[in-house]
Amino acid sequence: MDIAHIAMTVANGSTLDKQLDKLEEQVALSFQIEQTVSDIYTLQDEYQQFLRQAESVRDLSWANLIESQTHALSLQPHMDAYVPAYENIETLKAAYQTLEGVGGALALFQELDGFGSDSPLPPSIAALQQQLSALSVNRAAFDEMAYKKKLQVALSYNQVAEDLLTKAQELSQALLVSQRFSMTEGERLSAIKQAHDCILQSMDLKLASDQFVLDVMDEAEVSQSGPLKRYEHQLERRLLAVTPINQ
Protein backbone atom coordinates (compact mmCIF):
# COMPACT_ATOMS: atom_id res chain seq x y z
CA MET A 1 0.00 0.00 0.00
CA ASP A 2 1.79 3.13 -1.06
CA ILE A 3 1.25 6.63 0.17
CA ALA A 4 0.32 7.86 -3.32
CA HIS A 5 -2.85 5.80 -3.33
CA ILE A 6 -3.98 7.37 -0.09
CA ALA A 7 -3.20 10.84 -1.36
CA MET A 8 -5.26 10.17 -4.49
CA THR A 9 -8.23 8.93 -2.52
CA VAL A 10 -8.10 11.94 -0.24
CA ALA A 11 -7.91 14.23 -3.29
CA ASN A 12 -10.85 12.32 -4.73
CA GLY A 13 -12.75 13.01 -1.53
CA SER A 14 -12.21 16.74 -1.85
CA THR A 15 -13.45 16.65 -5.43
CA LEU A 16 -16.49 14.77 -4.27
CA ASP A 17 -17.06 17.47 -1.66
CA LYS A 18 -17.00 20.13 -4.34
CA GLN A 19 -19.48 18.14 -6.38
CA LEU A 20 -21.69 17.86 -3.35
CA ASP A 21 -21.59 21.62 -2.97
CA LYS A 22 -22.64 22.12 -6.55
CA LEU A 23 -25.36 19.54 -6.25
CA GLU A 24 -26.77 21.19 -3.16
CA GLU A 25 -26.86 24.44 -5.05
CA GLN A 26 -28.51 22.65 -7.96
CA VAL A 27 -31.20 21.26 -5.67
CA ALA A 28 -32.05 24.75 -4.49
CA LEU A 29 -32.16 26.02 -8.08
CA SER A 30 -34.34 23.18 -9.28
CA PHE A 31 -36.70 23.80 -6.42
CA GLN A 32 -36.96 27.45 -7.35
CA ILE A 33 -37.55 26.65 -11.01
CA GLU A 34 -40.23 24.16 -10.11
CA GLN A 35 -42.02 26.71 -7.95
CA THR A 36 -41.87 29.38 -10.65
CA VAL A 37 -43.12 27.10 -13.39
CA SER A 38 -45.94 25.89 -11.23
CA ASP A 39 -46.82 29.51 -10.46
CA ILE A 40 -46.92 30.26 -14.18
CA TYR A 41 -49.23 27.33 -14.76
CA THR A 42 -51.59 28.43 -11.99
CA LEU A 43 -51.60 31.98 -13.34
CA GLN A 44 -52.47 30.83 -16.85
CA ASP A 45 -55.15 28.52 -15.62
CA GLU A 46 -56.66 31.17 -13.38
CA TYR A 47 -56.65 33.68 -16.19
CA GLN A 48 -58.50 31.37 -18.50
CA GLN A 49 -61.05 30.63 -15.83
CA PHE A 50 -61.32 34.33 -15.23
CA LEU A 51 -62.16 34.99 -18.84
CA ARG A 52 -65.07 32.65 -18.57
CA GLN A 53 -66.63 34.34 -15.60
CA ALA A 54 -69.54 36.66 -16.11
CA GLU A 55 -70.39 37.81 -12.61
CA SER A 56 -68.69 41.19 -12.71
CA VAL A 57 -70.78 42.46 -15.61
CA ARG A 58 -73.89 40.63 -14.62
CA ASP A 59 -74.71 42.92 -11.73
CA LEU A 60 -74.30 46.06 -13.84
CA SER A 61 -77.53 47.51 -15.09
CA TRP A 62 -76.06 47.11 -18.56
CA ALA A 63 -76.89 43.49 -18.27
CA ASN A 64 -80.48 44.41 -17.67
CA LEU A 65 -81.93 44.59 -21.12
CA ILE A 66 -85.38 43.55 -20.03
CA GLU A 67 -86.85 47.00 -20.34
CA SER A 68 -85.43 47.66 -23.77
CA GLN A 69 -86.50 44.23 -24.80
CA THR A 70 -90.05 44.74 -23.61
CA HIS A 71 -90.22 47.93 -25.61
CA ALA A 72 -88.84 46.31 -28.71
CA LEU A 73 -91.13 43.33 -28.35
CA SER A 74 -94.21 45.41 -27.67
CA LEU A 75 -94.19 46.58 -31.29
CA GLN A 76 -96.66 44.11 -32.69
CA PRO A 77 -95.94 42.64 -36.10
CA HIS A 78 -99.60 42.41 -37.05
CA MET A 79 -102.18 45.11 -37.60
CA ASP A 80 -104.89 43.71 -35.36
CA ALA A 81 -103.25 45.04 -32.24
CA TYR A 82 -103.53 48.61 -33.51
CA VAL A 83 -106.65 48.76 -35.68
CA PRO A 84 -109.02 46.04 -34.55
CA ALA A 85 -112.16 47.95 -35.54
CA TYR A 86 -111.60 48.17 -39.30
CA GLU A 87 -113.55 45.79 -41.48
CA ASN A 88 -112.73 44.45 -44.93
CA ILE A 89 -108.99 44.87 -44.60
CA GLU A 90 -108.21 41.19 -44.28
CA THR A 91 -106.03 41.11 -47.39
CA LEU A 92 -104.03 44.06 -46.17
CA LYS A 93 -103.60 42.47 -42.75
CA ALA A 94 -102.45 39.22 -44.27
CA ALA A 95 -100.06 41.00 -46.60
CA TYR A 96 -98.62 43.02 -43.74
CA GLN A 97 -97.99 39.91 -41.74
CA THR A 98 -96.03 38.05 -44.40
CA LEU A 99 -92.37 38.81 -44.12
CA GLU A 100 -90.84 36.14 -46.28
CA GLY A 101 -90.60 36.32 -50.01
CA VAL A 102 -91.66 38.81 -52.62
CA GLY A 103 -95.33 37.83 -52.59
CA GLY A 104 -96.18 39.67 -49.41
CA ALA A 105 -94.48 42.84 -50.61
CA LEU A 106 -96.34 42.82 -53.91
CA ALA A 107 -99.64 42.17 -52.12
CA LEU A 108 -98.88 45.08 -49.81
CA PHE A 109 -98.17 47.30 -52.78
CA GLN A 110 -101.45 46.21 -54.37
CA GLU A 111 -103.40 46.94 -51.21
CA LEU A 112 -101.85 50.34 -50.57
CA ASP A 113 -101.12 51.74 -54.01
CA GLY A 114 -103.98 49.97 -55.70
CA PHE A 115 -103.20 50.56 -59.35
CA GLY A 116 -100.30 48.45 -60.46
CA SER A 117 -99.32 47.75 -64.01
CA ASP A 118 -100.21 44.11 -63.63
CA SER A 119 -103.76 44.70 -62.46
CA PRO A 120 -106.24 45.96 -65.05
CA LEU A 121 -107.95 49.30 -64.49
CA PRO A 122 -111.61 48.94 -63.52
CA PRO A 123 -113.83 49.07 -66.62
CA SER A 124 -116.56 51.40 -65.30
CA ILE A 125 -116.79 54.51 -63.20
CA ALA A 126 -118.77 52.63 -60.54
CA ALA A 127 -116.10 49.93 -60.27
CA LEU A 128 -113.43 52.59 -60.15
CA GLN A 129 -115.21 54.40 -57.34
CA GLN A 130 -115.57 51.17 -55.43
CA GLN A 131 -111.90 50.35 -55.81
CA LEU A 132 -110.95 53.84 -54.74
CA SER A 133 -113.09 53.67 -51.64
CA ALA A 134 -111.72 50.25 -50.71
CA LEU A 135 -108.27 51.70 -51.19
CA SER A 136 -109.01 54.66 -48.98
CA VAL A 137 -110.19 52.34 -46.20
CA ASN A 138 -106.96 50.41 -46.53
CA ARG A 139 -104.90 53.56 -46.42
CA ALA A 140 -106.79 54.96 -43.47
CA ALA A 141 -106.35 51.73 -41.55
CA PHE A 142 -102.70 51.59 -42.38
CA ASP A 143 -102.14 55.22 -41.47
CA GLU A 144 -103.85 54.75 -38.16
CA MET A 145 -101.70 51.77 -37.38
CA ALA A 146 -98.54 53.58 -38.40
CA TYR A 147 -99.42 56.60 -36.27
CA LYS A 148 -100.19 54.51 -33.23
CA LYS A 149 -97.02 52.56 -33.67
CA LYS A 150 -95.00 55.71 -34.13
CA LEU A 151 -96.35 57.15 -30.89
CA GLN A 152 -95.48 53.91 -29.18
CA VAL A 153 -91.93 54.15 -30.49
CA ALA A 154 -91.78 57.80 -29.42
CA LEU A 155 -92.74 56.93 -25.84
CA SER A 156 -90.35 54.04 -25.72
CA TYR A 157 -87.53 56.21 -27.06
CA ASN A 158 -88.10 58.50 -24.15
CA GLN A 159 -87.70 55.67 -21.68
CA VAL A 160 -84.74 54.16 -23.45
CA ALA A 161 -83.10 57.58 -23.32
CA GLU A 162 -83.47 57.64 -19.53
CA ASP A 163 -82.19 54.11 -19.35
CA LEU A 164 -79.15 54.95 -21.41
CA LEU A 165 -78.33 57.93 -19.22
CA THR A 166 -78.38 55.79 -16.10
CA LYS A 167 -76.26 53.18 -17.74
CA ALA A 168 -73.72 55.71 -18.95
CA GLN A 169 -73.45 57.14 -15.46
CA GLU A 170 -72.99 53.75 -13.93
CA LEU A 171 -70.42 52.77 -16.46
CA SER A 172 -68.29 55.85 -16.05
CA GLN A 173 -68.37 55.45 -12.28
CA ALA A 174 -67.48 51.80 -12.43
CA LEU A 175 -64.60 52.57 -14.73
CA LEU A 176 -63.11 55.06 -12.30
CA VAL A 177 -62.89 52.48 -9.54
CA SER A 178 -59.66 50.66 -10.17
CA GLN A 179 -59.55 46.91 -9.87
CA ARG A 180 -63.19 46.82 -10.85
CA PHE A 181 -62.72 45.44 -14.32
CA SER A 182 -59.94 43.61 -16.00
CA MET A 183 -59.05 45.51 -19.12
CA THR A 184 -56.22 47.27 -20.83
CA GLU A 185 -56.05 51.02 -20.78
CA GLY A 186 -57.11 51.12 -24.40
CA GLU A 187 -60.19 49.17 -23.57
CA ARG A 188 -60.84 51.40 -20.63
CA LEU A 189 -60.66 54.43 -22.85
CA SER A 190 -63.00 52.92 -25.38
CA ALA A 191 -65.38 52.02 -22.55
CA ILE A 192 -65.35 55.64 -21.47
CA LYS A 193 -66.13 56.59 -25.04
CA GLN A 194 -68.97 54.12 -24.92
CA ALA A 195 -70.39 55.93 -21.92
CA HIS A 196 -70.08 59.27 -23.69
CA ASP A 197 -71.75 57.93 -26.80
CA CYS A 198 -74.59 56.70 -24.67
CA ILE A 199 -75.19 60.16 -23.27
CA LEU A 200 -75.20 61.66 -26.76
CA GLN A 201 -77.47 58.98 -28.03
CA SER A 202 -79.88 59.47 -25.20
CA MET A 203 -80.14 63.13 -26.16
CA ASP A 204 -80.74 62.20 -29.78
CA LEU A 205 -83.42 59.77 -28.73
CA LYS A 206 -85.25 62.40 -26.73
CA LEU A 207 -85.23 64.70 -29.72
CA ALA A 208 -86.36 61.92 -32.03
CA SER A 209 -89.14 61.05 -29.63
CA ASP A 210 -90.51 64.58 -29.69
CA GLN A 211 -90.12 64.74 -33.45
CA PHE A 212 -92.14 61.58 -33.85
CA VAL A 213 -95.02 62.99 -31.87
CA LEU A 214 -94.95 66.16 -33.94
CA ASP A 215 -94.78 64.16 -37.15
CA VAL A 216 -97.79 62.12 -36.20
CA MET A 217 -99.74 65.26 -35.40
CA ASP A 218 -98.91 66.85 -38.74
CA GLU A 219 -99.39 63.78 -40.87
CA ALA A 220 -102.62 62.79 -39.21
CA GLU A 221 -104.00 66.23 -39.82
CA VAL A 222 -103.11 66.08 -43.51
CA SER A 223 -104.29 62.56 -44.13
CA GLN A 224 -107.48 62.77 -42.15
CA SER A 225 -108.64 66.24 -43.12
CA GLY A 226 -109.94 64.99 -46.48
CA PRO A 227 -112.15 62.16 -45.22
CA LEU A 228 -113.31 64.26 -42.28
CA LYS A 229 -114.32 67.09 -44.59
CA ARG A 230 -116.19 64.62 -46.75
CA TYR A 231 -117.96 63.19 -43.74
CA GLU A 232 -118.91 66.67 -42.63
CA HIS A 233 -120.35 67.39 -46.08
CA GLN A 234 -122.26 64.14 -45.96
CA LEU A 235 -123.78 65.06 -42.61
CA GLU A 236 -124.72 68.47 -43.96
CA ARG A 237 -126.35 66.91 -47.00
CA ARG A 238 -128.32 64.55 -44.82
CA LEU A 239 -129.47 67.43 -42.69
CA LEU A 240 -130.45 69.41 -45.78
CA ALA A 241 -132.34 66.45 -47.19
CA VAL A 242 -134.59 66.12 -44.19
CA THR A 243 -135.09 69.82 -43.68
CA PRO A 244 -138.49 70.85 -45.05
CA ILE A 245 -138.25 73.69 -47.55
CA ASN A 246 -141.24 75.64 -46.33
CA GLN A 247 -141.65 75.80 -42.62
Partner: peptide, 17 residues
Protein backbone atom coordinates in the same frame (compact mmCIF):
# COMPACT_ATOMS: atom_id res chain seq x y z
CA UNK B 1 -62.33 40.09 -21.04
CA UNK B 2 -64.77 42.23 -19.15
CA UNK B 3 -64.15 45.09 -21.53
CA UNK B 4 -65.31 42.91 -24.37
CA UNK B 5 -68.31 41.83 -22.37
CA UNK B 6 -69.26 45.43 -21.67
CA UNK B 7 -68.89 46.29 -25.32
CA UNK B 8 -71.11 43.43 -26.29
CA UNK B 9 -73.77 44.43 -23.81
CA UNK B 10 -73.91 47.86 -25.33
CA UNK B 11 -74.13 46.26 -28.76
CA UNK B 12 -77.19 44.36 -27.61
CA UNK B 13 -78.71 47.57 -26.34
CA UNK B 14 -78.15 49.02 -29.79
CA UNK B 15 -79.77 45.98 -31.37
CA UNK B 16 -82.93 46.44 -29.39
CA UNK B 17 -83.04 50.11 -30.23
Amino acid sequence: TEAERLKLLSTMQQYLL
